[in-house]
């Protein structure tokens, strides 16, 4: 049992929570995640540990409401309990001084890339960050990202805020402008990560992505999270979640993420009707 210490809505569909989990808070490193299970009937879902506070013993998660479980969590408040919190899981990000690093976050992926950005800057890198979302109200962590970077560029698909366009357009401009880039981190929706990887490939810029495969146990026991990297099957939970973006089969990942579309819809629908009707 872990209790929720605080909760804040970052946008209409993105929620931030601090959860009491002292051992995880002390142990976690940038790039790792937890598995949460809200209640007895609940599903196990992976969420990145965005931040931790060793003294308070809390971890911070930021999640987007996309289905039943995230909606259920969004309905919880400070003081409520989450039945199971397992972690820290996955390999920590390999933090080094690469030189000039570009960190790119799309949508809720900004929450995932924030701890990595912070760690990279602390390691002495010059960090340029690009964060994007569909529209202004969906941009999250702008202040935090700005503080964690030497330079921050914000982009929106509809032009309602910052640069008008995709984060990949911004990166292309940086490259075209003659910026020397040593390393790219890109985390967000699969099409975004695929676009960035395709963009950097011809320039030979090492590009790390963090994959959001469907998981069950997250200890390497089930293979639900398998992805293909350089033609080899890897388990995202224990071999990742970060991989070389130039080697990832994004189409396979996108297909596997759709495996339960119908049932997820059914579950979400049932949840929404239930919470309105009862």
């Amino acid at each position: 049992m872990s209790s929720i210490v605080s909760k804040e809505n970052l946008s209409e569909s993105v929620v931030r929570m601090d959860i009491l989990a002292p051992e995880i808070a002390r142990k976690r490193k940038a790039g790792q995640f937890v598995i949460l299970k809200v209640n007895e009937q609940g599903e196990r879902i992976p969420l990145t540990i965005v931040e931790s506070d060793g003294e308070q013993g809390t971890i911070t998660i930021i999640f987007q409401i996309v289905g039943k479980t995230t909606a259920l969590m969004a309905a919880l408040n400070a003081g409520d309990d989450i039945q199971d919190v397992q972690g820290p899981l996955g390999n920590p990000t390999e933090i080094e001084n690469f030189g000039h690093v570009v960190c790119i976050g799309g949508g809720v992926g900004v929450g995932v890339i924030y701890p990595i950005t912070k760690a990279l800057k602390e390691a002495g890198n010059r960090v340029t960050s690009i964060i994007g979302a569909r529209t202004k109200s969906l941009i999250i962590l702008e202040e935090e990202m700005s503080a964690a970077s030497n330079e921050l560029i914000v982009a929106t698909d509809d032009g309602s805020y910052g640069v008008h366009g995709f984060v990949s357009n911004v990166l292309q401009k940086l490259i075209d402008g003659g910026e020397k880039i040593d390393h790219v981190y890109a985390i967000g929706p699969v099409p975004m990560m695929k676009a960035i990887a395709n963009l950097t490939r011809p320039y030979g810029i090492k590009t790390i992505v963090s994959l959001n495969a469907i998981m069950v146990d997250a200890t390497g026991m089930c293979g639900a999270c398998r992805v293909s990297v350089a033609g080899k099957t890897e388990f995202t939970c224990v071999d990742g979640p970060e991989f070389d973006g130039h080697q990832v089969d994004f189409d396979l990942l996108a297909n596997r993420l759709r495996m339960y579309c119908e049932q997820e819809g059914q579950s979400y629908e049932r949840h929404r009707c239930g919470s309105q009707g009862n």
Binding site: E43, R44, K68, C222, G223, Q263, S267
Partner: peptide, 22 residues
């Protein structure tokens, strides 16, 4: 088999949608 059985047994997916795991 581990995934299939874990979903069904541990997560009780055979009782979906009463249980959330599909």
């Amino acid at each position: 088999a581990n995934e299939y059985l874990t979903r069904s047994n541990l997560m009780k997916a055979y009782r979906f949608p009463e249980y959330d795991t599909p």
